[in-house]
Amino acid sequence: MAQVLVVTSGKGGVGKTTSTAALGAALAQDGAKVVVIDFDVGLRNLDLVMGAERRVVFDLINVINGVAKLPQALIRDKRLENLHLLPASQTRDKDALTEDGIAKVIDELRSKFDWIVCDSPAGIERGATLAMRFADTAVIVTNPEVSSVRDSDRIIGLLDAKTLKAERGERVDKHLLITRFTPAAAARGEMLTIDDVLEILSCPLVGIIPESKEVLRASNVGSPVTLNDPLSAPARAYFDAARRLKGEPLPMVVHGDTKSIFTKLFARKAA
């Protein structure tokens, strides 16, 4: 059965789009049929991070307005034939994003895909609430930093109150994805530790993405990090997170770019 997954955070710049691309690709690399949807109307970027920016013809709002059929708007990834992108509109009015319209699009996608990954815009306005509205599962992207943790707490509250599942008395499966983590800084007491963040937010952890230049390198060339450099530390961390999302119990480790004894030591401490 299809799973609708929202990647959200409240705060901007914590890695939602990067994580949507990487998790979407990781799930597809494992054989699942995946579509990633950009909900950031007016400020779309998922197309750019996925390297499909020059192939956008129709977008989500065109589909909602009936200007284009869903299959016309879906962009098939050049590297993975089972990975698709539904881009956001770059210019049109945000009000064109209607709940009924999105419900229909998601319904149609459910019959075609195993995973429907919704990349939420920052904030708690319409775009963000609509991105989470139909979610079965949520990945809350958090940096180990005060403002990001506070906003994640807010988003967790919204996931428990404003989603269709919550209104039906069910629960959205929530998973915390900690990004831009620097084990050495946490060990020195300069950065919140994984345990600190988990204790404050009391939400199950799905992955720890270490701070890495590979993430920037991948977005520079327009490729999800799991495709661009599958053996890099962040890619391995995203692969692990994707497997946990499918329900596989995996031990939590912090992957390192270098395999020094220090990295291993810090990894154990943080996990």
């Binding site: 943790v149 807010r154 404050i200």
Partner: peptide, 18 residues
Amino acid sequence: GSAPVARERLQILLAHER
């Protein structure tokens, strides 16, 4: 480190915000 301060501030703030 300053992380314990961050942790303490967040715990107090979020207890209130919730």
